[in-house]
Structure formats: structure tokens, C-alpha cells
Amino acid sequence: MSNGNMNLTLKVWRQKNAQTAGKFVTYKAESISPDMSFLEMLDVVNESLTLKGDEPIHFDHDCREGICGMCSLYINGHPHGPKRAVTTCQLHMRSFKDGETITIEPWRATAFPIVKDLAVDRSAFDRIQQAGGYVSVNTGVSTDGNAIPIPKVIADEAFNSATCIGCGACVAACKNASAMLFVSAKITQLGLLPQGQPERYRRVQTMVAQMDEEGFGSCTNTGACEAECPKEIKLTNIARMNNDFFSAKLFREESIHEEQHGGA
């Protein structure tokens, strides 16, 4: 199947499931073409493993064009590999040297338990979004789309935050396994747009509360997340989130306190 001339050694984390212990297993990837994507290289390895009757290396992937956020992999010490602003599925083998040893690990975080081999459970991200990452409007809005003009700079800035693909590279890169870049991106997107204003100070509280519950670490502003984010989400999002959070907690009268503990 392969048609290239690169030969590589892979050190891959294999782990049957969250309950069993894992270990590194070494594989050879032979006749790899530099035009292959990283995942296509793994496809080649998996095809030969399957034919031998071994279980293929499990990893999450879907769109393979860098937008669905399903692929992950911590490759040679970098989430999504050594290239900036690309996901693993868009990382091509020309970024590696013939004969190189590549170490492939899953995202490591308490909040991302391992599913199998290199795949992790990122449902914590969904739960954070469910806690408040939306504008509460029902279907059937009749306000014209152009009724509220939004300055281009604001719309663009909101878009920059909205491009987050929810892959979890920020958590994987952060030495504290903090999810703040992810969380702040949604808070910033909706916090900038006029549509998001009514719930702005509620949203930041509910989302941060859920983030804390999931067991992510705290931000220490090292900026590793920003450097590794495949969509180049900026660290300033976190500052915006902090600002909104402290405004909400210290200066606003509305509170999420009662409903969280009183129950509705």
C-alpha cells in the first residue's frame, strides 16, 4: 500500500481501556511517503497489524481536514505534532526525517480519561458548553439578521474566538492541564457579540463552575496553549474571561449561587 521511502520507528502508547495499565510499544513504519498525512501513516501501520491479527492502534479521527477537532495525539512532545497551527490530520510526513523515532502519546489529563490507546474522553468539554455556552433563544426568532449592526472588528474578533475546534490541545499542552483557553474562547465569542450580552455574566459563572468541577488545572499564563493551539486561539481570551468572571462575582448582584445549590 505504501509507496514512499521513509522508514520510521514509532513508540506508541497502548492501553486497552481506562481500567488497565498501559505501556509503550515500538513499531516500524516502513516505506512511508512524505506526502502522507500522519494519520495515513498510522493507517498503513494499522493495516499491517490487522493482517497479522493484532489489534490496530486506536486513535480518534474523523474529518481529516483539520476542522472537526476529533484527532489528537501528543507527538514528540507536542500536541498535534511539531508544526504550528495544524492538527494531526493535516500534519504531513514531510515534517519528519527518514529514520526518525516518533513518540506518540495520548492527551494526559485527569479530566480526559483514556478510552483506548491514544483516544481520550473529552466529554468534559461538552459538559462545560452545556453549562452555559449558548445564547438562550428558541427557534423561531423573528428579528432580522441586520437589525443589530455589529462593528466588523467585533465580529472578526468574535470569529477568531469561535474558530476553536474543541480538540483539547490546550489542555494537553498546559503544564497544569488547564482548560481555560477552550472555555474562554466561547465566553469571549459570546461576550463580544450583542446577542450574548444578556447572559454574559451568568455564562461566565456557570461555565467556570463546571470547568472547576471537571478537574482541570488553573491557568498560570505560560502561553503554552496559545503556542500549540491548531486554530491559534489567543491568550487574551483568558484575560477577557477573568475580567468578566471577577466583574460578575464581585460587582454584579445577580448570582448563580441559589440555583446551583437550591436546585430548581
Partner: peptide
């Protein structure tokens, strides 16, 4: 209304 950041 949902906050989709369309180009403007």
C-alpha cells in the same frame, strides 16, 4: 440570534 459570527 444564536451568536453565529457571520462576516460583516
Amino acid at each position: 440570534a444564536q451568536g453565529v459570527p457571520f462576516a460583516r
